[in-house]
């Protein structure tokens, strides 16, 4: 086996072990685990309920059908679920940096950003993932191609969500405490990811495809699932890859400015 293949295999084994232990840690408190997952599914279904009422009165939202809107919910929540379950620290980096908790990761021989991202699992996000699968079961296209397209949409959505927020969170290296700002950016991003893109026009739409690129997630049900558009899909893939490269670069530059800290920390 070549050195590169060995490195990739050991990285994969490290990721799998971390995810396995994250899940084991989450399940340590059975009751809390079940309640968190259950209430998140319930919470998400409230939105489905409201959209259901809307569609009994109107058949379309700017050309989007009930199925399209349900797929927006599925992909938006699913992308968040994938991000928060497998890369749970994507919205915790600012706190980790400003409290000096990066030390443990920096002392280990693994890529720092990846190590930080995978070292936390948000338990309630398992509920988002299950909710996404339930919606796919109810409203998705149940063919091999339909499933492949749905999984691709989830992957693109999760990558954009993770790396855009890593960029926002990495501001902590440059401006100190960026927790508040990071939280606002995340909330804005998630909210607009869950609404049909066509309700935004003009400047709003421009922002959705530039400064706050949640449009590349919310338009996935149309541009990828319903009416495959090469330009949109490649554009979304390009944005995901571009954001990933930029996030790794900015994080790397930020590490040179990292100031550590003296806070007592435990790995939870």
């Amino acid at each position: 086996m070549s050195t590169a293949a060995k490195k990739s295999l050991s990285l994969l084994q490290f990721l799998l072990t971390t995810w396995k232990l994250n899940l084991a840690g989450a399940m340590e408190f059975r009751m809390s685990f079940s309640i968190s997952v259950g209430t998140m599914i319930l919470n998400n279904f409230v939105w489905v309920f409201f959209w259901g009422i809307y569609f009994t009165k109107f058949p379309l939202v700017n050309g989007w059908t009930l199925q399209d809107v349900m797929m927006v919910q599925a992909i938006g929540n699913g992308a968040f679920g994938v991000a928060a379950v497998f890369f749970g620290n994507f919205i915790g980096i600012a706190n980790i940096v400003s409290t000096g908790q990066l030390d443990t990761y920096l002392a280990q021989p693994k890529p720092v950003l990846l190590n930080v991202l995978v070292s936390k699992m948000t338990v309630s996000a398992i509920g988002d993932l299950l909710f996404c699968l339930i919606l796919y079961g109810l409203y998705g296209v149940h063919t091999g191609l339909g499933l492949a397209k749905f999984l691709l949409a989830l992957l693109i959505g999760a990558a954009i969500m993770v790396f855009f927020n890593v960029l926002a969170q990495s501001l902590a290296f440059f401006i100190g405490n960026a927790e508040g700002l990071g939280f606002q950016v995340f909330n804005a991003f998630l909210t607009v990811s869950l609404y049909p893109t066509n309700i935004f026009h003009g400047l709003g739409k421009l922002i959705l495809f530039t400064a706050l690129p949640a449009g590349y997630i919310s338009f996935l049900p149309i541009g990828l699932l319903r009416d495959w558009s090469n330009s949109f899909v490649w554009g979304a893939v390009g944005v995901a890859l571009g954001l990933a490269l930029l996030a790794f670069r900015v994080f790397r530059i930020g590490l040179k400015r990292y100031g550590s800290g003296n806070m007592m920390t435990m790995r939870m």
Binding site: A24, G25, T104, M263, M264, T265, R267, M268
Partner: peptide
């Protein structure tokens, strides 16, 4: 090749 023990920063997983 390096080991580090920081008395105030734990490497151990708290809930495991």
């Amino acid at each position: 090749h390096v080991g580090s023990v920081f008395g105030q920063k734990s490497q151990l997983w708290y809930h495991l």
